[in-house]
Design a protein around this nucleic acid. Structure first.
Length: 573
RNA sequence: GGCGUUAUAGCUCAGUUGGUUAGAGCGAACGACUCAUAAUCGUUAGGUCCCUGGUUCAAGUCCAGGUAACGCCA
């Protein structure tokens, strides 16, 4: 038994995520976690909401709420939707947790002790009316380039020109509208990542089994231009983790908080602490996952993320861990995904384009989405969601190949032998052949799952479903029954055992359908097949079962057209 | 403008370190079956592997140049 620590990139608190976000990290991470648990490994699967930063403040203000209140509500909403998609987090934490406050401050202190923090004075805009410094995005004014009067201090949305707040004509606060602004000196902390460049470089070089996409992005950041740049890790905001040096005050940094990119990845660790606290466990219980001096040296740590997050996971976060000089568990394998596009363009949270997680669940149960998304995961390049493709994949794979198999075998059995597993002698040569075929495919499926080859795993799983249909078609128990009912009984028994196999193998992809099949076969516990001969004889003669409800109803043309129309524009609410 | 990724059957995609007749699923045509959600199974037809040049006994695969789409940065 191995120990697997699995984290998914943590979704930002600001609103409900779309299907592109889901397949970019949380869903494949869940697939991997479920598979590893099914194989009997010890798994800790963590995710959380990323709650700090300017967008959260803006969204809260727009909703007319305090930031803390807004974040608490949105965390509950996201947690509920995650449950809806059957994401099996051991804990769904919050980057605003007390654990993350303490740990982030701890890391900052350690980094400072190691001489890896610089204090730098810079000029920033202060708003007298708001009584605070304003981040670039909080300042609005007229774009000097195109004359657009709602340009932001970082960029003009109209002409896309990058700006400095001081470029704006008639600048005003986006918070209060006040024009009583002043440029002031303010001090910020910088993490001297450049000092750690060689260590990071060597560490990345040691990861020969990482995908090209991952290492090429990391190498580019390390070597392009001036190389790895030092980065500011503090901000003049109210909402966030107060800047402290461990448990001590940080002179000159009063009223400032850590920048979101610094504290968000630390939440991966803090989340384990939240998990322990929520389950009445001790510090040692989470530290054995994260501290190599406390038992984590045999942990295999895998991170899942979209490609836009790769630099943070390969450079910034490792810089924090290495720089601390403490024995923290570093990532072993890093699986990154490209983007999922929607009908010819990008999914977009800010523009409300595409299908959002809550809307998806209103249309169809989780298994449909899980199957389509995973079997079309954007692994080697960007992938495309179209309603036609979704309809045909889901109907063919789930309704016709898997669903219909379960239906035909259970109903055939009921009509000829009743709702019990029939006897009728031992398996013959045809059965031996199918069992061998399925065993071989199952081994391949396991290897692909182990390697996190998501699409190929889905293909192999589907091929295993097809084997059942092939078998039934070739031995035709409905024909056999006329001349040799005993033989037909035996063939039907294997068919039912195959249904059991499909329930177990499909569980990581289709947890609900899997549970439904097991329930109808009256199997209490799903156990992964080790010996296929043995497994496919587990359902014994005279064992009762119940014909299940239709597992997957088809998506009709009318459904598809209606949904296509409904999701053609941008989200209204 | 710079950089990156991609380009293979009507569609969605596989093609390991260059090695016989380039594969799968869907869709199409034909056939089989009738247990089943008009489901299933089989057979067949579809490809100048974006273009040009190069390296090699041998290139979808490596190199150079070009074209197109997308993305990131300026």
């Amino acid at each position: 038994m191995a120990r697997h620590l699995i984290t998914s990139a943590i979704p930002y608190i600001n609103g409900i995520k779309h299907l592109g976000n889901l397949i970019g990290s949380q869903l494949p991470a869940d697939l991997f976690a479920r598979y590893m648990r099914a194989r009997g490994h010890e798994v800790l699967f963590l995710c959380a909401t990323d709650e700090h930063g300017t967008p959260a403040e803006l969204a809260a203000a727009k909703a007319g709420k305090q930031v803390a209140e807004y974040c608490a509500e949105m965390h509950a909403v996201q947690a509920e939707i995650a449950r809806g998609f059957r994401l099996s987090f051991d804990h769904f934490g919050r980057s605003s947790s007390p654990q993350n406050h303490a740990l982030t401050q701890h890391f900052a202190g350690r980094l400072d002790d190691a001489g890896l923090i610089n204090e730098i004075s810079e000029k920033q805009v202060y708003s007298h009316a708001d009584g605070r410094f304003l981040p670039d995005r909080y300042i609005e004014g007229t774009c000097p380039n195109c004359g657009y009067d709602k340009a932001r201090g970082d960029q003009c949305e109209n002409c896309t020109k990058q700006l400095d707040p001081t470029d704006l004509i008639d600048p005003r606060s986006a918070v209060s509208g006040s024009t009583d602004l002043e440029v002031r000196e303010t001090k910020h902390l910088y993490l001297r990542q450049s000092e750690l460049k060689d260590q990071l470089d060597a560490w990345i070089d040691s990861k020969s089994d990482w995908p090209v996409l991952t290492t090429s992005i990391a190498k580019k950041w390390l070597h392009d231009g001036d190389g790895l740049r030092d980065r500011g890790i503090t901000r003049d905001l109210d909402w966030g983790i107060p800047v402290r040096k461990g448990t001590e005050d940080w002179p000159g940094m009063e009223g400032k908080v850590f920048y979101v990119w610094f504290d968000a990845p630390i939440e991966y660790i803090a989340c384990a602490g939240e998990w322990a606290a929520a389950n009445g466990l001790s510090d040692a219980d989470w530290q054995r996952w994260w501290r190599t001096d406390m038992g984590a040296s045999d942990v295999r740590y895998t991170q899942f993320m979209g490609k836009d997050n790769v630099p943070f996971h390969t450079l910034s976060f490792p810089a924090t861990l290495i720089g601390s000089g403490e024995p923290w568990k570093m990532v072993d394998h890093l699986k990154s995904f490209n983007y999922l596009n929607y009908d010819g363009g990008q999914f977009s949270t800010s523009q409300g384009r595409g299908i959002f997680m809550d809307q998806a669940l209103e249309l169809l149960p989780a298994d449909y989405w899980r199957w389509w998304l995973l079997s079309h995961a954007p692994e080697s390049s960007d992938a495309e969601f179209t309603w036609e493709n979704f309809q045909s994949s889901v109907n063919k794979d789930l309704a016709d190949v898997l669903g219909n198999f379960i239906s035909r075998i259970t109903k055939f059995c009921r009509s000829k032998f009743g709702e019990v597993v029939p006897g009728g002698g031992a398996y013959g040569p045809e059965e031996t052949a199918v069992i061998a075929d399925v065993a071989e495919r199952c081994a391949r499926y396991g290897a692909l799952m182990e390697a996190m080859e998501v699409r190929k795993s889905a293909q192999e799983l589907r091929a295993i479903w097809v084997s059942g249909n092939e078998y039934l078609q070739s031995v035709a128990p409905w024909t056999t029954f006329k001349s040799d009912p005993d033989k037909a009984a035996m063939q039907t028994r294997l068919g039912l055992n195959l249904a059991h196999l499909y329930a177990v193998l499909s569980a990581p992809f289709l947890p609900d359908a899997s549970a439904a099949i097991l329930k109808s076969l009256q199997v209490d516990e799903a156990v992964w097949p080790e010996d296929m001969n043995e497994f496919l004889s587990q359902l014994k003669p005279d064992q009762a079962f119940v014909v299940p409800e239709v597992l997957f109803a088809k998506v009709t043309d009318e459904d598809r057209e209606a949904w296509q129309a409904r999701f053609s524009g941008v989200r209204q609410s």
